[in-house]
Nucleic acid binder design. Structure first.
Length: 820
DNA sequence: GTAGGGTTAG
């Protein structure tokens, strides 16, 4: 009989389901290779046990073979068998075949309809499921039963579309069915209507395991651990034990709420009751331990699993990826591929982050291509955002922008990723521009991530008023107590010259972690309050907060700005001895800066000589900067040679060296440096200063002639110059590197960008109000001196933030005591 | 012959 099948099948199915043709021969092949349990064929095929046959179909192609067989044996319209086929396709995840089979059934009974609805639900086509249900309810003439509602209610729960369905449940009188009631509980939980869910749950006359789990997972999925525990207690009182479903819900909420104690207790319960063999439980355990940073525990759970699915692999890969171990994560990904587990969208999300962490530009393109080929970029915004983030982290911000522009749907995180990308690549203006565009899209609601991405951009350009506007929005959204947003605000106020505001805000935000402390210590440092920074460090220790490597960078630089050499050396020592932190290049840079500024050039050089790691440009640059302050020609030549070896393309160092040579009158050397820079195609970074007046940031370049108020600005400077000279100001012409007449040199000094910005501030703001200037490079020595005079003449406080620190000018003196 | 409650994300 089977040998004859192919031709017979061919005739039948060419009329009905053409694509089944291909399965004719497969069917016989499958039979002969015993992929179908042969017990189903009772000697000579007299009685076929369809139960066994259906349950033998574990792959779609086997289902198609069976389908073909049913058609050829004339059972195509057998309501019992064809409905089971719909169900089978649904289980195997082929919803389109389920649908085609369903459509061919002329007389559909309630089982057939229920199968089709649940097929849609299982494949995530919730809208189709609801439409199919209504077709069933209103047009089929068949009455839904208690089996019909649980799946359609699940679909509603995914679409926030359930009140109407609840009415139908009541109308048809199924609210007391334990499955239906549990589905209602779960649906309302999904909407976040926990009290409605709880009320329904309390009224249930009978509760099975599924009902308890529906209520508990309702609380868990809303992040309400306390609510979940309350239900759990009731459950225990009634003598019901947790099953794997309860446990996996609870483990997820433990990791979300950082409750490692409960998480470990549940793990003990799991071991005691032998629930480790459940896939979901093990996966949830891996995720939880990864969240707690306990990679050893996560790995152990993974190793002990008997069977692993794609979620297990994704979880262990993400565990390493998110705990800064991209190499191990990549190794696991390769292993996963080797054993033939198909990656999914979430694997790709981790992969994008892995290549970004590894700075692997080439692989980033492959990952992007891989995702595009699978059509995932169009399918889910999450993966698009991951790619934007990946490119941004790799510094390929233009690629990030292109991917962003091409996203079919953008959510708040897409915008945040791009803003952060610009801000972290030093493009604060672009970040601000993108945020402005985001604000135009009213349907996008900014969130915590938005504030954390835009505030540093405002800090960077010193846009205090716009930063304060964000502060207002943060308060409105009740996010002002969020550690990360709070820290960004502290940083913003600090970097925009409002140290007092930064400090008072700091004491209002949670400060259990080192993050806000690091920010406030760094603010004190750049304002030249080294001693206060040390005091805060002490306070931090008293409050039991553990300092990290960032804390010490902030502290060391604070000491260096204030000339606290002994204290700085003490910090450097305890960092290693008491906290076991190995100094990084940044720490060494700070130490060289600290000693060098204080004139201990020999010691600074010794620090470099004794470094166990290769010094980079920032370390040599710190030494060169010190040579400039203390006029050490020999050492500067040596330092600059090393510097041009490691970073020949940074123009700033050539300028610094020219300054040194100009100061000691080595004009020939100066010419050499200049031609060296010119030959390497380097051009001096133009100096610019900005000032924010009436919510608008005005930028001035040195010698700017195009500003609308240009004439008034130069007039004001002229008047000021006369007054300054009468008070004893003598222009320091050594800051002009151009070889021109002294008159011209004086004119160049007067048109430095910081002076233009100050003059603009004076003519555009009320008398005696504070002026805040931001300069992209270090403030020039002559401008520093001149600003002291201007603060006295105009009786204004002038705050200048340059690329290094703050200078507070008041009554003719600067808070830095001319030490910078 | 059918249904509900579970794990991973930028």
């Amino acid at each position: 009989m089977f040998r004859l099948l192919p031709t017979c099948i061919g005739r039948h199915i060419s009329k009905s389901l053409p694509s089944l043709q291909a399965h004719c021969s497969l069917f016989s092949a499958a039979i002969s290779s015993r992929q179908f349990t042969s017990d189903g064929f009772n000697n000579g095929n007299k009685d076929i046990d369809f139960n066994i046959l259906f349950s033998s179909c574990t792959k779609v192609h086997l289902a198609k073979c069976l389908h073909a067989f049913l058609l050829v044996s004339g059972k195509g319209q057998n309501i019992f068998l064809s409905a089971r086929l719909v169900n089978l396709y649904a289980y195997l995840g082929d919803v389109s075949f389920a649908q085609r089979t369903f459509d061919q059934i002329l007389k559909k009974d309630v089982y057939t309809w229920n199968s089709m609805v649940s097929a849609y639900v299982r494949s995530g086509r919730f809208r189709d499921a609801i439409n199919c249900f209504y077709l069933f309810l209103l047009t089929s003439g068949v009455r839904p039963d208690s089996y019909s509602f649980p799946s359609v209610l699940k679909a509603c729960g995914n679409l926030v579309d359930g009140k109407k369905m609840h009415c139908w449940v009541l109308k048809l009188g199924f609210e007391w069915d334990v499955f239906v009631a549990a589905s209602l509980v779960h649906m309302y939980s999904r909407f976040g209507f926990l009290s409605a869910a709880r009320k329904l749950f309390n009224n249930m006359p009978v509760r099975d395991m599924g009902s308890w789990n529906a209520m508990i997972s309702g609380f868990c999925q809303n992040g309400n651990a306390a609510g979940a525990l309350e239900v759990l207690d009731e459950m225990r009182l009634e003598g019901v034990k947790m099953d794997p479903v309860t446990v996996s819900s609870l483990l997820a909420v433990c990791s979300q709420s950082d409750d490692s104690l409960s998480g470990m207790l549940i793990h003990l319960y799991v071991i005691k009751h032998g629930l480790e063999c459940d896939l979901f439980v093990s996966n949830a355990l891996i995720n939880m331990y990864a969240k707690f940073g306990s990679l050893g525990h996560a790995q152990r759970v993974f190793d002990q699993m008997e069977a692993r699915d794609v979620v297990s692999w994704n979880s262990i890969i993400a565990a390493y990826e998110q705990n800064d171990n991209p190499i191990t994560a990549l190794g696991l990904f390769n292993r996963m591929q080797l054993i033939g587990i198909q990656s999914d969208l979430l694997t790709a999300v981790s992969l994008a982050s892995i290549v970004a962490q590894l700075s692997d530009h080439q692989s980033s393109r492959s990952v992007h291509g891989f995702i595009v080929r699978r059509g995932w970029l169009m399918e889910d915004v999450v993966i698009g955002n991951a790619i934007v983030d990946m490119y941004a982290k790799l510094g390929a911000i233009d690629s990030a922008r292109t991917v962003f522009e091409g996203l079919p749907v953008k959510d708040a995180i897409s915008w945040n990723s791009l803003i952060t990308g610009y801000a972290q690549n030093g493009l604060a203006d672009e970040a601000i521009e993108v945020y402005r565009m985001m604000e135009e899209h009213k349907e996008i609601i900014p969130n915590q991530g938005t504030w954390v991405s835009i505030l540093p951009a405002y800090s960077h350009v010193g846009a205090l008023q716009q930063g304060m506007r964000i502060h207002g929005r943060v308060i409105k959204n009740c996010l002002y107590l969020d550690v990360f947003v709070g820290t960004c605000l502290v940083d913003m106020y600090g970097k925009c010259g409002r140290l007092d505001d930064a400090l008072s805000l700091f004491y209002h935000i949670p400060r259990m972690s080192s993050v806000p402390w690091n920010a406030v210590i760094s603010c004190l440092g750049i304002h030249g309050h080294g001693e206060k920074a040390l005091k805060l460090f002490n306070e931090m220790l008293v409050e039991g907060v553990k300092p990290d490597h960032v804390t010490f960078v902030s502290l060391l630089s604070a000491c260096s700005h204030s000339g606290l050499v002994d204290e700085g050396q003490w910090c450097f020592r305890i960092m290693q001895e008491e906290y076991g932190i190995k100094p990084s290049l940044k720490h060494y840079g700070c130490m060289v800066d600290l000693l060098g500024r204080a004139g201990r050039l020999e010691m600074a050089y010794n620090v470099i000589k004794n470094m166990p790691i290769q010094p980079d440009a920032s370390v040599w640059g710190a030494l060169l900067g010190a040579c400039r302050i203390h006029g050490n020609y020999e050492l500067s030549t040596f330092a600059s040679d090393r510097l041009f070896e490691v970073e020949p393309e940074n123009v700033g160092y050539y300028v610094l060296l020219s300054n040194i040579y100009a100061n000691v009158g080595k004009w020939e050397d100066l010419d050499k440096v200049r031609s060296l820079a010119r030959n390497r195609g380097l051009r001096k970074t133009p100096g610019w200063s900005s000032i924010e007046v009436n919510n608008k940031v005005d930028v001035f370049y040195t010698g700017n002639q195009t500003h609308p108020k240009c004439e008034e600005i130069y007039n004001e400077l002229k008047i000021l110059n006369t007054k300054m000279k009468s008070l004893g100001y003598i222009p320091d012409l050594s800051f002009v590197l151009q070889d021109v007449e002294d008159d011209e040199k004086e004119h160049i000094l007067t048109s430095h960008s910081e002076r233009l910005a100050i003059a603009f501030g004076i003519i555009s703001t009320p008398p005696k109000s504070t002026i805040r200037i931001f300069k992209n490079l270090r403030v020039c020595g002559d401008c520093h001196n001149a600003t002291k005079f201007i603060s006295r003449i105009t009786e204004r406080e002038i705050i200048v933030r340059d690329s290094n620190r703050f200078h507070h000018f008041k009554d003719g003196i600067c808070s830095c005591g001319d030490y910078w």
